[in-house]
């Protein structure tokens, strides 16, 4: 039995439409028009204990909706969903006591209170025994380097500091599952690295199951063994980054540095990704060796580098491909 089980999950939102203008506002009072939006369509996956899974997709794909259903916030329209054998929205209180949730865009802490008092309140809400709480709190303060922030009211923290405090707050009751909804959004480079390092450590050392939504593919590359790709409410892919590359970005990037400026030959023109005075970057889909031969024959090559296309590129290709299919 997997720790998280999602089967045929769908969620349709009914959104009240209001026509523009004053007349529209009055009209809405009398008769409302509703529009249905399918946020999730028949999504199925399962996650085993201790996995670190990345959940990606364009805006409005349904990532947050999934997280909210798994956290017991939303009730799905149809489908099955069990976490630790519990149905989140039916056994809400037992369920949420066993998970941790972080919304990167929205704090879970008390705005006007110093951080440490928010932690103390959470101890009471989650009914964590004092001895357990103190050990855990000190451990998290140490790991996330929060010592200097504890007496600061949450509203005065920077975003990076706040996210670190939020992550600590979500883990005080020692949940075995952690849902992170865009934890690195808006963070500067250093804070991003800190948060990533912490998530990795948490997963590796404490075997916490982590499901992470993100737009930042560096997060995925740095952290996740497995990714779920969602687009327009449908699950497009469930596999490793290697699988993703194989399906949508099997080619290579070939970068060359030129001895002197040379024009690109016509048969290579549609392969150029970028070019400057002294450099050309090609994207090559197949038969890389003969392409290299070709390049060496045609251009005055000073230096040459073959790489994987960046993951952004792969994902963009995949979203494009799916759009065309539909």
């Amino acid at each position: 039995m997997p720790q998280i089980l999602v089967e045929g999950l769908s969620k349709t939102f009914r959104i009240a439409e209001r026509k523009a203008g004053l007349l529209g506002a009055f009209g809405g009072l009398i008769r409302r028009q509703y529009r249905s939006v399918d946020a999730l369509r028949d999504v199925s996956f399962s996650i085993a204990e201790g996995e670190l899974v990345g959940y990606i997709g364009p805006n409005g794909a349904g990532k947050s909706t999934t997280i909210k259903i798994l956290s017991g916030i939303l009730v799905p329209s149809t489908g099955r969903c069990e976490v630790n054998g519990r149905i989140p929205w039916k056994q809400r209180r037992e369920h949420v006591a066993s998970i941790g949730v972080v919304f990167g865009q929205r704090t879970q802490l008390w705005w006007d209170l110093p951080v440490i008092e928010s932690f103390d309140l959470l101890r009471d809400i989650y009914r964590v025994p004092s001895s357990v709480y103190e050990r855990r709190r000190d451990e998290l303060i140490e790991m996330l380097d929060l010592n200097r922030l504890l007496d600061t009211p949450v509203r005065q923290l920077s975003l990076g500091q706040r996210v670190r405090c939020d992550i600590a707050a979500a883990l005080l009751h020692e949940p075995k599952i952690l849902f992170l909804d865009e934890p690195t959004i808006g963070l500067d480079a250093v804070s991003q690295l800190n948060v990533r390092a912490f998530i990795k450590q948490l997963s590796r050392e404490q075997k916490v199951t982590v499901l992470l939504t993100t737009h930042d593919l560096d997060d995925i590359e740095a952290l996740c063994d497995r990714i779920l790709v969602l687009s327009d409410g449908r699950l497009l892919m469930d596999g490793s980054i290697g699988d993703l590359r194989q399906r949508y970005g099997d080619g290579r990037y070939v970068a060359i540095e030129l001895e002197s400026f040379t024009t690109v030959t016509p048969e290579h023109e549609n392969l150029v990704v970028e070019r400057s005075e002294s450099h050309i970057l090609f994207s090559v889909e197949s038969d890389v060796p003969s392409f290299i031969d070709d390049v060496l024959g045609h251009y005055p090559v000073k230096d040459l580098l073959i790489t994987h296309p960046p993951i952004e590129r792969v994902v963009a290709t995949m979203y494009e491909a799916e759009k065309i299919e539909r």
């Binding site: 956290s71 017991g72 916030i73 037992e94 949730v101 929205r106 809400i125 989650y126 009914r127």
Partner: peptide, 13 residues
């Protein structure tokens, strides 16, 4: 504001 999310993820009434 959608802040009710925050209430719902707490194990209390």
């Amino acid at each position: 504001t959608g802040q009710f999310d925050r209430v719902l993820v707490r194990p209390a009434s």
